[in-house]
Design a protein around this nucleic acid. Structure first.
Lengths: 112, 112
DNA sequence: TTGACATACCTCGGACCTCAAGGCGTTATC
DNA sequence: GATAACGCCTTGAGGTCCGAGGTATGTCAA
C-alpha cells in the first residue's frame, strides 16, 4: 500500500504552527495534531521526533528539559529562525494550494 | 538545497486531470503543466515519464503510438481505473487541503 | 504483586517520490 | 554543418513519512 500523498511537509508545517503559539513536548504534539485535526492527520512518533530533532539541529527550535511527575519531558519552542522558516512554509503552502486549485478551475474541474 | 515541500503527489494529480479531458503525449504534458500553472509547477521529464510508466503498468492509463512528422509520440489517456484513481486523488487532496487550512484557522493563524 | 495501560523518550529501515543530469535519435532552422 | 527544438528514455541522489520496535517510569485494577 503506497503511502499517503500530499503529506510531504505537512507534519513540519503543523508542528511549527503549534510551537509558534506556545512551547510543547513531543508526545503532546503527536496527540495534539491528531486531536486538533479531527484525526485527519495522525502522525506517529516515528514521524514527529525526527522532525523535532532536525529542527533543533537547524536552530529553528530550542529545547528545555523538565521532569513532570517522574517523567522527563522536552519542551520545544520556536527561535527567530524557526519563525522565519514558518513564514516560508506558509507561503510555500499557499502557493501550492492555490496553484492546484486554480489549475483545476482552469480545466473546469469540479473539486469532489 | 532541500527539494520543494508540499509537492508529493501533485504531479500525478495534475497529470490525471489533464488526461481526463483528452489524450496527450509526455513531452506535451511537461510543457502544458508549466504553461497552465503559470510556471508555479515546472515538472521536468524525469518526473513525468516515470509517473506515466507507472500509471500504465497499473492500468490507469492506456497508450497509443503515433508518428507525427517523423517523430514517434505516445499518447496517453485515462482508463476507467484511472478515472477512479483521479477521484481518489481529488478527494485526498481536498481532505489534506481543507485539513491544513482549518488547522491554521483554529489556531488563529493568518495565512500569509 | 502482577499485569496491563498510559506516559514519554528514542532509532532504524523500508517504501516512496521528486528531480537534475545525462543519453538517444529525428527534424527544423540558420 | 551546427544549433536548437522535438520526443522518448533511465539513473542516482536526496529527502520524506511511517510502521515497528526498544527503553523506562507511573498508575490502577485484579
Amino acid at each position: 500500500m503506497p503511502r499517503d500523498l500530499f503529506i510531504d511537509g505537512v507534519p513540519e508545517l503543523l508542528l511549527l504552527r503549534l510551537l509558534a503559539r506556545k512551547e510543547m513536548y513531543g508526545y503532546e504534539l503527536v496527540s495534539e495534531i491528531s486531536k486538533r485535526s479531527n484525526n485527519v492527520f495522525t502522525f506517529g512518533e516515528g514521524c514527529i521526533y525526527p522532525i523535532l530533532h532536525r529542527l533543533v539541529s537547524q536552530k529553528q527550535l530550542s529545547v528545555r528539559k523538565e521532569t513532570v511527575s517522574g517523567r522527563p519531558r522536552r519542551y520545544y519552542k520556536l527561535t527567530a529562525k524557526g519563525n522565519h522558516r514558518l513564514s516560508e512554509l506558509e507561503s510555500s503552502w499557499s502557493n501550492v494550494s492555490a496553484g492546484v486549485t486554480s489549475f483545476g478551475k482552469a480545466l473546469g474541474n469540479v473539486a469532489s
